[in-house]
Amino acid sequence: MLYIKCPYCGLRAQKEFSYGGDATVKRPNINEEVSSEDWDNFVYMRKSPRGKHIELWQHIAGCRQWIKVQRDTATHEIFQTAKVTEEIR
């Protein structure tokens, strides 16, 4: 079970969180024209990297905040966690 550092609550067990997918995907702006390709990329296309991956998790059984987690998909090592408003590099 992973040990995830919620930027608001501190280190918590994985069972308090739910997974939310790739955090680097950006939704096209609302009320703006978007090409079919950009839209498809947003809705469907995801990379499945082996290694570092920035992803979203929600602390559903805690503060209910969505957070960013940089995790190694092969080893589960977590390098960094951040608020969604912050950048992970």
């Binding site: 939310g20 929600q58 559903i60 209910r64 905040q65 969505w66 969604v84």
Partner: peptide, 17 residues
């Protein structure tokens, strides 16, 4: 119920803060 709440929180926190 639970999915909709998470869905709303996702848009409020991430997409349209």
């Amino acid at each position: 119920a639970a999915n909709v709440l998470s869905h709303l929180e996702y848009y409020l926190q991430i997409v349209w803060p």
